[in-house]
Amino acid sequence: MIEVKNIHKSFDGEEILKGIDFVFETGKTNLIIGESGSGKSVLLKCMLGLFKPEKGTIEYDGSAYYSFTDVEQRELRKEVGMLFQGGALFDSMTVEENVMFPLRMFTTHRRRELKSRVAEVLKRVNLEGSENKYPAEISGGMQKRVAIARAIVNKPKYLFCDEPNSGLDPKTATIIDNLIQELTRENNITTVIITHDMNSVLEIGENIAFLKDGVLAWQGDKSKIFKTDDETVTDFVYSSDLFKKVRNAQLKGH
C-alpha cells in the first residue's frame, strides 16, 4: 500500500500538484488518469523520490519515504520496478542486457540463471528472438515491451508504469494490461499505472485517481466510472462518441 498525503509540487513558481491525497492499494491495479499536462508523471516521480515535493508525505506500507535514510531508500528502490513514459532503455546495451541489468546489479545468480530468467520475462511480453538487438533497432512498441520486461524482471513489490500501452496496437496493449494485472494479483504487489487508454480504464481500473488542474477530481473503480454523474469525469472519459455509445448501452443494460 502506498499512501500519498497532501503532495504539493511547483516548477518555476507554477503549482502543478496542489495537495494530492490518495491510497494506492496492494494487490490491485491502481490507475492515475487525467489530461495531458495534468501532472500525472510528476506525481509518479514524487512517489519515487525523483522529485522532492514542497509539502506532503509518501508512505510505503506505513513508513514515510522522505524520512528514510539513504540506505533505507536504496533498499526500497531494489523492490521498485519502474516503466518510464519514454522507455528509458539504455541505448548502449542490447535488449537482453537491458532486461538483465537489474538482476546483474542486485543478485548473485550465475549468468545462465540470469539468461533463463530474462528469456522467461521476454517471452511474457512476446519478445523472443530480439535478445541481441539494440533499442535503436527495434520499433517503439517493442521498446516499450522491453522496458516493461526490465521493470518486472526483478519481481518488484511496487510496480510503477507510466503509460505502459501508449504506442502499442490494441491487441498488444491488452496483452500488456492483462500481464500487469496478472503479476499484480499473482505476487500481491502494489501497482500504479498512468494511462490515457480508456480500454485500460474499463478493463483493469480497480482503483482510479482522476487528476485535474492539480487536484484529485474523482476517485473510484471501473464500475463506478460507468455510473458517475460527475461531469468532469464523464467529459474526460467519454470524450469520444464511441465511448458515449458504449456507456449508454451499458446504462440501459443495468
Partner: peptide, 17 residues
C-alpha cells in the same frame, strides 16, 4: 546528456544505483 534527457539516469536512480 542524452542519458539525462531520455530519463536513463532517472532509471538508474530508481533502481537504487
Amino acid at each position: 546528456g542524452s542519458m539525462r534527457v531520455t530519463e536513463q539516469i532517472d532509471a538508474l536512480e530508481v533502481m537504487g544505483i
